[in-house]
């Protein structure tokens, strides 16, 4: 089976130790995590993990099964790139001296919707939000200008179709009398 990029979205209770429980599931199967992000989700007190992996569909299906088994995981989904809108943010710190000399690169930044978020006599900080190929492309462009630092966030993604997470929580609230 062919390996592909899969985005695993995991809705969880906000619980200490869950990150290592989830990471261990990947580790045990020697699967490299390309990126991982943890943040609040659309549901109160529910966290959302987004993990990007390059695996076969069979692997990702099994992983999601193991993840869902964890007590504090409410629901996990996996998606291919086509089923998602996703973005990541990259920051590039370049030396002012080299950068100022070249108006071509300044144009490029404007055209590709990157932004200069800080400018000092010594360095510029450029921010670019987009797909991986776009941030990669800018990286290649800026490299000749003395890239002093580069950092990229994990991928964040929302699915085109609905993820039925709130339904699950509502059901719990109605079927169990909570004080």
């Amino acid at each position: 089976m062919e390996k592909k990029n899969y985005t695993v979205s995991i809705y969880t209770e906000n619980n200490l130790g869950l990150l290592s429980r989830i990471a261990a599931i990947f580790l045990k199967r020697h699967i490299n995590i390309e990126s991982i992000t943890v943040s609040k989700s659309e549901v109160n007190d529910v966290m959302r993990f987004i993990v990007i992996v390059q695996v076969t569909e069979d692997q990702v299906r099994k992983i999601v099964g193991q993840i869902e088994k964890q007590i504090e995981v409410i629901k996990a989904f996996y998606h291919t790139d086509e089923e998602l809108f996703f973005q990541e943010t990259a920051l590039y710190k370049v030396r002012s001296s080299d950068f100022m000399k070249d108006s071509g690169i300044q144009h490029f930044i404007q055209e590709t919707n990157a932004r200069i978020v800080a400018a000092t006599p010594d360095f510029f900080v450029i921010e670019k939000t987009g797909r991986r190929q776009e941030t990669d492309h800018l990286y290649e462009k800026l490299k000749p200008y003395g890239l002093m630092q580069f950092v990229r966030s994990g991928t964040i993604a929302v699915s085109k179709n609905e993820m039925q997470i709130s339904g699950i929580l509502e059901k719990f609230n109605t079927t169990n009398s909570l004080s």
């Binding site: 969880t12 209770e13 007590i71 504090e72 995981v73 409410i74 699950i168 929580l169 719990f172 609230n173 079927t175 169990n176």
Partner: peptide
Amino acid sequence: KCSGIRSY
């Protein structure tokens, strides 16, 4: 006694 956990 516990009778349910919403994520489980």
